[in-house]
Amino acid sequence: MNRRDFIRNSVKVGAGIAVGGSPLWSFGKALGGLTILYTNDWHSRIDPFPMDGGRYEGLGGASKRAALIEKVRNDSSNVILLDAGDIFQGTPYFNYFGGELEFKLMSAMGYDAVTLGNHDFDAGLDGLAKQLVHARFEILTANYDFSSTILKNKFQPSTIIKKGPWKIGVLGVGIDLQNLVPAEHFGATRYTDPIAAANREADHLKNKLKCDLVICLSHLGYEYRSDKVSDVHLAKYSENIDLILGGHTHTFLREPVILKNKIGKNIRVCQTGWAGINLGKIDYEAHTISTAANPHSTMLKIC
């Protein structure tokens, strides 16, 4: 919902109050905002790009990112930190240490949740399992079935993060591993339809668990020339997701792309490029609408 939609909706709700006249309805009370910080595809880029004349020289680096995250946390009340996968692979840090340092750093930075990218399988299921001891954050995947692997029961499809007045549902989906990851690296992992899985989890989070906001961490890729499933597809066929934080295609989206979901509501898709060059930042404001849990409250649909 953009600001204009919100104002339009507030007018509708206001009219409803006038007609219904219930003193129990309150509207427009400003609450603490929510800041979402996010990364994707940082690919073991622990150090900034070297000053060697390259396109990205001096950019990125885990230490700088951590300081920036800390600065945002000091300036804002409710901050969550997420990543959309491909944490591993790309510099000798991964070749030598197998992802141990990446997970330790993300834990120290206070990441809340991540999803898995295809390169997070590059050390095989054993390699990934070995590093889980260093991960003090949730790893979310709704469409990979690990039940016949050593990673059985290690991950959840979604989680709820509570920050101040906010109840935020976060889920994760990943790309088809066939022909992308060597078969011996993903073993008996079973890929299932990411759109069906995302919709199932989002419905649960939004409608059953009453989350205020539902975020999908996606490693499907932003968009393809072919009809391969992507974040654009996911957005169009979703119903209860508010925000997609994507990865895989290393797409630099300077600001979120607004698309319409299958019921015509706005959904935003974001991606920060790659290598930890950027830190995505999205701000939400909150208002309350007290909603009576009875079937007469048609205004619930407006929320």
């Binding site: 600001r3 007045p165 830190l279 930042k281 999205i282 939400y284 208002h287 929320c303």
Partner: peptide, 21 residues
């Protein structure tokens, strides 16, 4: 009736940006 009322937030998008170091 009061206890059946559930307060729910309406998220209002404010801004989104990439912060380059």
């Amino acid at each position: 009736f009061i206890t059946s009322c559930k307060s729910r937030l309406t998220p209002t998008y404010v801004s989104g940006e990439l912060k380059q170091f």
